[in-house]
Design a protein around this nucleic acid. Structure first.
Length: 404
DNA sequence: TCTGGGGTCCTAGGACCC
DNA sequence: TCTGGGGTCCTAGGACCC
């Protein structure tokens, strides 16, 4: 068995520094010189921090922290909402900017992306990875107007971890061969995939360092976490990852819309109105992506933060409010029958997605009446067109003219 | 301190089919 | 007769990420 070893990969992870804060400053130039900005929450309360400026972070403010606590820690902070349009625009600009450096560039979320520069060395005069990273950083600042931090290494895991050392607005590259030593300097909770639950379990078992985790043999890991999880843990604590940077605009797994209400919902009418609005948002977002769904899920969170969901999968994909709403209503009815409690959060998710123009699945046995008529689809498309032209409020939710 | 909204992935049990 | 095994789909719940 002789196989030439694959070349050491050259991976970069590009991450926007406090993306929502930078977007808020772009949306409102009056904030350009404001150091204390916290994005997120709602004027009524009941929100968390989506992003905090580095100024606020010095006071201990962090993402996902309840807004009330953030403002207690940093009372002078200016609270602003998320400017979705700007965030979306900057996301697309960043994607385009990164794509100019290699065909293997892919966004991993709204504010971060990976580049695989393996084999591109000649294109960049064989300069060190760090030098390329710095040029990309400057280019993003000029072309997109955003400060980013960049981490580099021989795989995505290492590149991402390196980014946290680069922040803010820096570059950090882990040399090939130095992966294991680099990871050894971290705390288990810093490893992607090691969330609060796993970290607590590790602590219970007396495992509070990467070294302690590395000392475990595979058999023990398997016994505690099962084959799959054991392999992942074993590799991550050693800085090993083979996950490729993949491009391709895949069909998303789901499109959803959910809302936490200022007051818990109780009455039939307010629940019906809330559900209609969520169905309309989700369906419209889905159609915008050119997709249809076979599965409808309704999710409810009670005041004690217990989440429950009901879903139904249809034989054929649907895309209109007219088809989705009755199903969502039934699911909500079942949820309420099983758990008659006030509802803090309500959500609608559409999944099992396919492209709108995917050929209809028809079989000889398929005699069930269509859940959605061609007329329904044309009406929904017409309503979408009106909204695109005259704004979201041009027509009621779902375009259900005449009340529905 | 009182907990958002957008997602992905995994597990596990039951139905159903071969 | 009283007992199979594997694959796929569906549903529900939950961990995790940004």
């Amino acid at each position: 068995m002789s196989a030439s070893a694959p070349p050491t990969r050259r991976i970069l992870h590009v991450d926007v520094d406090a993306m929502f804060v930078q977007c808020a400053r772009i949306a409102d130039p009056a904030l350009a010189n404001e150091e204390l900005i916290v994005v997120g929450g709602s004027p009524e309360g009941r929100g968390v921090v989506a992003s905090a400026s580095y100024g606020c972070r010095r006071y201990g403010v962090r993402s996902a922290m309840p807004m009330a606590e953030a403002l207690r820690l940093c009372p002078r902070a200016v609270r602003v909402g998320v400017s979705r349009a700007v965030v979306g625009q900057k996301h697309r600009e960043l994607e385009a900017a990164l794509g100019r450096w290699t065909p293997l560039a892919a966004m991993a979320s709204v504010d971060e992306g990976y580049l695989d520069l393996t084999g591109c060395e000649a294109l960049y005069d064989d300069e060190p990875l760090e030098a390329t990273a710095r040029r990309i950083q400057r280019a993003v600042r000029e072309e997109v107007g955003l400060d980013v931090s960049i981490g580099g290494g021989s795989n995505k895991l290492i590149a991402k971890l390196a980014t946290s050392l680069a922040k803010p607005a820096g570059v950090h590259v882990v040399p090939a061969g130095g992966e294991a030593d680099f990871v050894a300097t971290l705390h288990p909770g810093e490893i992607p995939g090691f969330g609060p639950v796993l970290v607590a379990e590790l602590k219970r078992r007396g495992l509070d360092s990467i070294a302690a985790l590395r000392a475990l043999d595979m058999e023990t890991l398997r016994r505690w976490w099962g084959e799959e999880r054991a392999r992942t843990i074993w590799a991550r604590v050693r800085g090993i990852s083979h996950e490729p940077v993949t491009v391709g605009d895949d069909i998303p797994q789901s499109v959803s819309s959910e809302r936490t209400y200022a007051r818990d919902l109780v009455g039939d009418d307010e629940l019906a109105r809330a559900l209609l609005a969520l169905v309309a948002e989700a369906a419209q977002a889905m159609r915008k992506k050119g997709l249809s769904a076979r599965t409808v899920t309704v999710k409810a969170r009670d005041p004690r933060f217990q989440d429950r969901q009901k879903s139904r999968t249809l034989p054929e994909p649907v895309r209109t409010e007219r088809a989705i709403l009755p199903i969502a209503r039934e699911l909500l009815l079942q949820l309420r029958a099983d758990h008659p409690t006030p509802i803090r959060l309500l959500g609608v998710r559409l999944s099992s997605l396919t492209h709108l123009d995917a050929p209809e699945q028809t079989t000889l046995l398929d005699v069930a009446p269509a859940v959605e008529s061609e007329r329904d689809r044309r009406l929904a498309a017409a309503a979408d067109a009106l909204r695109a032209r005259f704004g979201k409020r041009a027509i009621g939710p779902g375009g259900m003219v005449g009340g529905e």
